[in-house]
Amino acid sequence: MIYFDNSATTQISPEALTTYNTVSQKIWGNPSSLHNLGETAWNLLQQSRKQIADLFSVQPGEIVFTSGGSEGDNWVIKGTALAKQQFGKHIITSSVEHAAVRNSLHQLEELGFDVTYLPVDGEGRVDPAAVQEAIRPDTIMVSIMAVNNEIGTVQPIKEIGKILNNYPRIHFMVDAVQAIGKGLDDVVFSDRVDFATFSGHKFHAPRGTGFVYKKNGRQLMPLVNGGGQEQGLRGGTENTPGDAAMAKAIRLMKEKETVTVQREREVKQRIMDHLKDFPHVKVFSKNDAGFAPHILCFAIVGVRGETVVHAFEDQGIYLSTTSACSSKKDTETSTLSAMKVPQNIAECAVRVSLGDQNTLAEAEQFNQTFDELYAGFKKILD
């Protein structure tokens, strides 16, 4: 089996799984309890929080545990709206955001908020000047993803941050789910970013784990009210085993990040070099600094994406159409549509998303399989 769908989810690492099982069995007290079992669990939770904070050079109090990226996106967007609605109801975002951001904003629009959806260029990138142009006196938030989950575009977060330095009261949120472990920490944690969201299952942590980076001093209303957990920002008994396992997964990921990024770039390039020779193939991603190392989106024009996905699956190679969150829905591909790619081409798009375990040998096997499948598809393309 060759697994090229790491942007959808990753397999939990053996080390993270061991941590999860050990904590579940031995440190199972409620961190809010006053007795020794609770104190032990509380200390482990804080140790996990500090480990993550240290790895990203932020403060432990700026790390808030969640259940994943979608919760983080919903919370920061709606929490900002609730906290700042007396100052304004205008939010700026891009036209290529993840569904968790997009649908949260649609819900706010139904409640009377005004959202500006910025266009993107032919590479799926927002123009920072468009952000400047869109800012109004009643703007309370700008939300731009770090890495596009469909074609891998790295957004100009630093440049947008420089613009927002002139507007200190506007919250700046970055969906960083696809950026973690990809050599992009300087983008995600640039000085002007107020919030960044992360999902554990994208980097070999258990599903149902994640965290939000919340800059000290930024106001945010809770989305889940409860017993005062997570500094009163997210109620509910903490997922101590999951959070400890996530901290372990992040540490392991960071230890080999440089090697992983280099290998992903090499694997991606090997496939791209092969695809460029086929007349019916359209490649949407690039492999320079403007694109993440792990995402490659292409289309065999004339063959629907789901047909290509299942054809590779029959050969033991797993990829996806575009975003796994919407691949089973009969909807337009949001990023490619925003890039003005014709719908008949966009519906043919598939995504290869790499991880730290993928190799050049797998790229060669992919290319060989592609040749065989393309020969079969060519009968309907010519």
Rank of each mutant, 00 (worst) to 15 (best):
N6W: 09
N6V: 15
N6P: 15
S7C: 13
S7H: 14
T10P: 15
L17Y: 09
I27S: 07
G29A: 04
S32V: 13
S32Q: 14
S33P: 10
N36D: 15
G38R: 05
G38V: 08
G38K: 02
E39D: 15
Q47T: 08
Q47V: 11
R49V: 12
K50S: 07
Q51W: 03
V58A: 00
Q59W: 04
T66E: 01
G69V: 06
G69M: 07
E71M: 08
E71S: 13
N74S: 11
N74M: 07
I77D: 04
T80C: 12
L82F: 09
L82D: 01
Q85K: 05
H90E: 14
T93H: 04
A100Y: 12
V101M: 07
S104E: 02
L108Q: 03
F113R: 05
D114S: 12
P119T: 11
G122W: 02
V126Q: 00
A130R: 00
V131A: 03
Q132G: 08
A134Y: 06
A134H: 06
A134D: 03
I140P: 04
M141A: 08
I151P: 11
E159K: 04
I160M: 07
G161E: 00
L164N: 04
M173N: 05
A179E: 07
G181H: 00
L184N: 03
V187A: 01
V187K: 00
F189G: 02
S190T: 13
D191E: 10
H201C: 13
G208N: 06
Y213S: 09
K214S: 03
K215L: 04
Q219C: 11
P222S: 02
L223P: 06
L223C: 10
Q231N: 11
G235D: 05
E238M: 15
P241V: 10
D243N: 09
A249F: 03
I250R: 03
T258I: 07
R263A: 08
E264I: 09
E266L: 12
K268V: 05
I271N: 08
I271Q: 04
M272I: 13
D277T: 10
K282D: 09
V283K: 10
F284R: 04
S285E: 09
F291G: 07
F291A: 09
F298Q: 14
G305L: 06
T307E: 14
T307D: 08
T307K: 15
V308F: 02
H310D: 14
F312P: 08
L319G: 05
T321R: 02
T322V: 15
S323C: 14
S327N: 10
K329F: 14
T333K: 14
S334I: 09
S334Y: 06
T335F: 10
M339N: 05
M339F: 13
Q343Y: 05
L354I: 13
Q357H: 08
N358E: 12
N358M: 03
E364D: 15
F366N: 04
A375K: 10
G376W: 13
K379I: 13
L381E: 14
L381G: 12
L381N: 13
D382S: 12
D382T: 15
